[in-house]
Write a protein that binds this DNA or RNA. Structure first.
Lengths: 357, 357
DNA sequence: ACGAAATATTCAATCGTTTTAATACGATTG
DNA sequence: CAATCGTATTAAAACGATTGAATATTTCGT
């Protein structure tokens, strides 16, 4: 005696409707908490929910999305997931999305323009309702995104300022970070300070440099241009490290004295530590080193890396919140305000800096 | 004069059908390359494809999935995306999935059992067709997965052996890795070798230790149990580092001589480097240190970390391939063979090991 | 006690595909 | 020559939800 219709394992809305004695419409309205559910009797709601529960009903996302035109997903496009810089941002994004009905769909472009475009396409095909782009390194295709923006899709870029393309952006205050880095070294007593600037193409490089110069100017300090080097524009993810090693070796070979070094980012700083070691010196005894970012591994090296922290977690959160805000608007504005939101950096003291001996 | 029906921006199958002069059925068959497309005239195919192209038609994934019962997604559940160990595996997974029609949906459980379950649920709701679990650290819930397995969903776990729960697994050959680590130190001339074993709960710990003992036995070497320590079972992701620091300090304070140290993994090894430094010693001059995993940052520290490499990329690839193989089967077997696939580790030489002075 | 407004529920159409079974037709075969 | 077969195409029924309009029923102000 087959009590249940032994057709299929799948429990549908209709099953719930039948068993609870209400129409599919009502069941749908109750279970999806549609506006109309205001009018459904409390008792009814309860009965429906209970039978849904007892049957183990799970709505079919595809049917739901097809009809309602909502995918309840947002795309997250990251330039290189193996870059530790990205990961903390991702966690911020995920954390913020968790309590919402939106699911992140994460794609990793592997530093590859082609893949970036491909995945962008894929995300569109999957009907994501919003897009968060995590761009750490070079990437000059506001173009692609502008196209989407016109399709009324909320977009935010984190880690890079693309407001000139009218796209909402979230970054750390790089200028302030550069300022803080210099200030820290200066206060320790350093005066002869070397700098390894970031790649010229990267906007951050200039901003951080500006900050350093501002502090120097305030103190009447002069940068000897021979103590200032610059990473090449290679977009290889570890080029920061390699560059750090080489430029540091060069600096030492040049016989110019310096008691401290500001590295463009943590990877470069680690490269500098290595370069120092290759020339028989150690940080911070022979030279203090300060990085930028505070990637997780900065705490794990020896010496621990003093660095300017980007609040990556919050950057991710904030970016996500901006997208969510737009999605929650029922109106027709539906666009992220195309401005830049700057988050303050902070100094993280570890062991790679100390007073000059 | 509105030439096109200005109803909506969306181009549907019906639009293509109308414009090409064929029925929706034919169009669907052609564009989705269904089996029946064998019978469709080449000319027809071409015409349909051309008009689809010209209209910029993109099939609606939701409608498609609803009808065909295929989500074309596989779930990837990772225990902590901020663990660099996971990331390379993820890249392997992604690389393998890229040329297939399957999209990975990545969820990060943040070392949290509850979230793991929640996300598992979410993935089921999204109707993933397969599941890859990346489990680096403690996780004893074969149970959850077994439930799914019974629902005919192909599952593979990478990074942990859960074959006892009849779930296909992919790991590195930990025993061989332990053996190699010891062999390397022995060949450098070390005889007094300290060991920091992994947490007792973690199966890997025992296996690596077995490998070390096997080598020792072959050489008639004895481990002084006082030189063997063990990490606690804390499931904090950085506990490896902290543990490494502390246990190394303890080892040194115990005044037992040792010229080399085998760390459970790279994080522990970095902890050991730090512990050494705290006690005024440096690697490898005062003590050689070897790690396990070869996480990306192992190459970035100073000294560069000699380590036993897990082929994480390939592990991810292999796991993915196993799931894909099952998905491609049309038959009714549809289960990943519940066996363990071991991949060989390899020694990566860097600067943290050298002959004893 | 009448009509309007608020509450409670349902009908039926619809979202955009895939798929099964059916149709149509010329060629092959026994 | 009828029966069968292979090729080429299509009609129509799903898939499982949401939703706008419609239908009852109750409440309420006057």
């Amino acid at each position: 005696m087959p009590e249940r219709k032994s057709k299929s394992a799948r429990v549908t809305l209709v099953d719930v409707a039948r068993k609870s004695g209400f129409s599919p419409s009502t069941v749908s309205i109750v279970l999806s908490e549609a506006p109309l559910s205001r009018y459904v009797a409390a008792q009814t709601k309860e009965r429906i929910r209970k039978t849904a529960q007892s049957l183990g009903y799970r709505p079919d996302v595809f049917a739901r999305s097809l009809r309602s035109r909502h995918s309840h997903t947002v795309g997250v496009l990251v330039f290189d997931i193996s870059d530790p810089y990205c990961v903390l941002i991702l966690q911020g994004i995920e954390k913020t999305l968790l309590p919402t009905p939106y699911l992140p769909i994460l794609m990793d472009a592997h530093h590859d323009q082609k893949q970036f475009e491909g995945y962008l396409d894929l995300l569109m095909e999957r009907r994501v309702e919003g897009l968060i782009v995590v761009a750490n390194w070079l990437f000059d295709e506001g173009g692609l995104l502008v196209g989407l923006k016109e399709k009324k899709m909320p977009i935010v870029v984190v880690g890079r300022d693309v407001t000139e393309k009218q796209i909402g952006s979230v970054t750390v205050d790089n200028e302030a970070g550069g300022y803080e880095a210099m200030k820290h070294l200066y206060e320790l007593g350093h005066r002869k300070i070397a700098v390894i600037r970031g790649p010229a193409k990267l906007n951050d490089s200039q901003l951080r440099w500006n900050g350093m110069q501002r502090f120097a100017a305030e103190q009447g300090l002069q940068f000897d241009p021979r103590r200032v080097r610059q990473l090449s524009d290679a977009l290889d993810p570890v080029s920061g490290f390699e560059g750090g090693v080489q430029l540091t070796e060069e600096l030492i070979r040049s016989r110019l004295k310096f008691t401290a070094l500001v590295a463009f980012d943590d990877l470069t700083a680690l490269g500098a530590v290595r370069g120092l070691a290759r020339m028989g010196r150690t940080a911070p005894q022979d030279c203090s080193i300060i990085g930028f970012d505070d990637v997780p591994l900065a705490a794990l090296t020896t010496p621990g890396l003093t660095t300017i922290r980007q609040p990556m977690d919050e950057m991710g959160s904030l970016a996500t919140q901006r997208v969510l805000d737009v999605l929650q608007e029922v109106g027709e504005a539906r666009e992220v305000t195309p401005d830049l939101q700057l988050l303050p950096p902070s100094l993280v003291l570890r062991d790679s800096t100390s007073s000059p001996s």
